[in-house]
Design a protein around this nucleic acid. Structure first.
Lengths: 239, 239
DNA sequence: CAAAGAGACCTGTCTGACAGGTTTTGTGAT
DNA sequence: ATCACAAAACCTGTCAGACAGGTCTCTTTG
């Protein structure tokens, strides 16, 4: 069979999955990086010898995985690493009762005690600053739960970034959807102001340990944070 | 606005992403679980008031995320949790130089020291048996690198399963593509038989600690395993 | 009652068409 | 020669219709 360019091999599990593979290969073989443009749908249709429908479905699949960015009128671009796909997987697992929130928390504890330690070791001054700023914002807006939650999420994201390992950031980011569900439960169960302050204080301890460059203390404070959250969640009927 | 069924709201970032959301919602609202059937493309096309092309692209996107299974002639099924999507994300990150192999190893170390400890706590006898069998198979086929690698991968997967937390299994599974690349490097750098045996012995130590129900020793042995792998990889120019 | 066959249903793929973005080109003014 | 702006070329998003081939179901038959 006249193999011209990247013609799809027959016998595959469908033309679309073959096209997905061919387009991924194209990215790899041409050494494309984030922001680089892919061939147009018409070009791909020609070179893969399949209809534009098949190419479109393949591109849509890659877009769902966030390997490429699609936008009307423009050619597809290679995408930057993004936690959207992993996030969807976790959300699906939760919604279909294949995983539980406590299981996610166990993984988060494992991952984030490590990111806290790494952040303490690798953080720049600007990052220590940003992490502290999130805590300050939580404290100063403690009457606006919605805001406190956003700052809390930003706090954990910032620590993951400061750990300087995008894989950690990816995983932490993909759990954000879980936290958005459980955070209000956690907050509501702390009715007295001193309980809310205690929770924010743990965050401050983590931030200080990271700022001080003390991985052991950062890890220990993060562990306390998760133990506390899990305790509250379990008391509230784990939801 | 006449909301009939699950008609798509306008103003979204495209009909397809709206359809993806609507179909995900459908799964959630109807409490569908793995194996349950989705409506046909024609039904979805009608109820969402979009063309079949749009529905197909939406289904293809969900299929890429492994939230549903598509097969010719059959209706789409809700899928079981699967590491395929996360695996693609990691592979893409590596191929586009957005993450490095050592970064993946750092995450693996973090995750797998924990799965080893959890496996020691939660394993069934059958699971301890299976983990040990993988080690035995590595030892007895040590002249067939290909086989040793497969048993090694199975060993780590079995431990993740024995940890009884599918989220850990998901993450470990999604790193398998990395291991398949680095494993041969690791193996080739151990030219003398006693070096190869030493590597298998670490696996045996892990298996024994898990069988003995000793989380501390399991964690420590797994940590040794990763330290050793990273040392060899770094010596080989990290690749 | 079980197995084989027919029909309905469904998905995979192709073609052609058109609206509305985006990039490039070409033109004219400065 | 350069810059701004308008036109053209290009590209993606969506739709409609068509047909081949896989799957399920129900009925008929042995």
């Amino acid at each position: 069979m006249g193999r011209s360019g990247e013609t799809i091999e027959p016998g595959d599990g469908g033309l679309v999955s073959a096209a997905v593979g061919a387009i991924s290969d194209h990215i790899r073989r041409h050494g494309l990086g984030p922001g680089d443009r892919l061939p147009s749908e018409a070009d791909l249709s020609r070179s893969l010898a399949v209809s534009r429908s098949v190419v479109r479905e393949a591109l849509r699949a890659l877009s769902a995985l966030r390997l490429i960015d699609l936008r009307a009128g423009r050619r597809a671009l290679v995408a930057e690493l993004d936690d959207g796909a992993m996030s969807s997987v976790i959300a699906h697992g939760l919604h279909t009762d294949q995983i539980t929130i406590l299981q996610v928390y166990d993984v988060r504890r494992t991952i984030e005690t490590r990111t806290a330690a790494l952040a303490a070791l690798h953080r720049s001054d600007a990052e220590a600053e940003e992490i502290g700023a999130h805590v300050e914002a939580m404290r100063s807006q403690s009457d606006l739960p919605e805001r406190v939650m956003e700052e809390d999420l930003g706090f954990h994201r910032a620590i993951a970034r400061a750990a300087r390992n995008p894989v950690f950031a990816l995983i932490v980011g993909s759990f954000e959807c879980v936290t958005r569900q459980t955070w209000p439960i956690n907050w509501r169960s702390r009715t007295r102001p001193e309980e809310q302050i205690a929770m924010i204080d743990i965050h401050r301890d983590i931030a200080r340990a990271i700022a001080a460059g003390d991985p052991g203390r950062a890890c220990e404070a993060m562990a306390r944070h998760f133990d506390e959250s899990v305790r509250v969640l379990a008391a509230a009927g784990q939801v």
